[in-house]
């Protein structure tokens, strides 16, 4: 385990002490990666910790209320209007599968909905230090976690990470840093036998982006993950060992 990770229960879930240590980060949307996922697992059933995070979130909100308004550049309003009128503007979000719920950070739906809390802060460096198991997504699968690094023949070193929390629902998180390039790329899970399931997509900014959501589609013996460019090129792959 990474020394930066929080205390975990045997199932990978953060405990109350760890949650209290991280509640401020969670409330501000800056708790990253695996710690966030484990905190959310804990919040699903701990009302006391939910209250703690909710009350600290109120502080974050109040802090931003202090920021004085600033007049945006001329033409801002018309540019927003054009954006809302774009033909695909209300298509299902690029960053999640249809039906997987809202993606913003927290608390506008009940905490137990999970996904709402998950996404905004993931960022770099999910700190689970080693992979755990190749899961079989049976209905009885427990909330264990799987982790793998992204690699590419075109670049040396780790290019990101994929993290799966095998609870109900299954949550998948990916972060990539390809160094360059912007645009939407697809996030796929690879099952034993080679079948692939697209679980989402992410908009890379200068090569960097992250994505996560609850996955409703049935998954069977996931062996890896793949990041795919819009033209079908494989940008990075990961293998669960």
């Amino acid at each position: 385990m990474s020394p930066m990770s929080e205390p975990m229960s045997p199932m990978g879930e953060m405990d109350c002490d760890g949650l209290r240590d991280s509640a401020a980060e969670l409330a501000l949307g800056v708790l990253s990666g695996a710690d966030r996922a484990r905190a959310l697992m804990h919040l699903e059933h701990c009302l006391d910790c939910q209250k703690e995070v909710d009350s600290l979130s109120t502080v974050g909100d109040a802090l931003f209320e202090l920021v004085p308004p600033v007049e945006p550049p001329v033409g801002f309003e018309s540019r927003v209007a054009a954006r809302l009128q774009a033909p695909d503007a209300r298509a299902p979000s690029r960053s999640r599968r249809p039906g997987t719920g809202p993606w913003w950070r927290r608390a506008w739906v009940p905490v137990a909905a999970g996904v709402a809390l998950v996404l905004a802060a993931g960022g770099g460096g999910w700190a689970i230090g080693s992979s755990t198991q190749v899961p079989s997504a049976s209905p009885a699968a427990k909330a264990s976690v799987s982790w793998a690094s992204f690699h590419s023949p075109a670049r040396r070193g780790d290019l990101g990470e994929v993290f799966i929390s095998w609870g109900r629902p299954v949550w998948v998180f990916m972060t990539v840093d390809l160094g360059q390039g912007s645009g939407v790329v697809g996030c796929f899970l690879v099952e034993q036998g080679g079948q692939e399931v697209q679980v989402g997509s992410v908009n890379l900014v200068r090569g960097f982006g992250y994505w996560g959501a609850a996955v409703q589609a049935p998954l069977w013996k996931v062996t890896g993950a793949r990041i795919v460019a819009s033209d079908g090129r494989t940008l990075a792959t990961a293998s669960f060992r």
Partner: peptide
């Protein structure tokens, strides 16, 4: 604003005022 528009139906007034919700979206982005 685009996200607010896309997710307007998900807004839950019990969780706080519209401005705070919108600023949360802004912060996350």
């Amino acid at each position: 604003f685009e996200r607010a528009w896309r997710h307007a139906r998900m807004y839950d007034a019990r969780r706080g005022p519209v401005q705070a919700w919108l600023l949360t979206i802004t912060r996350n982005l």
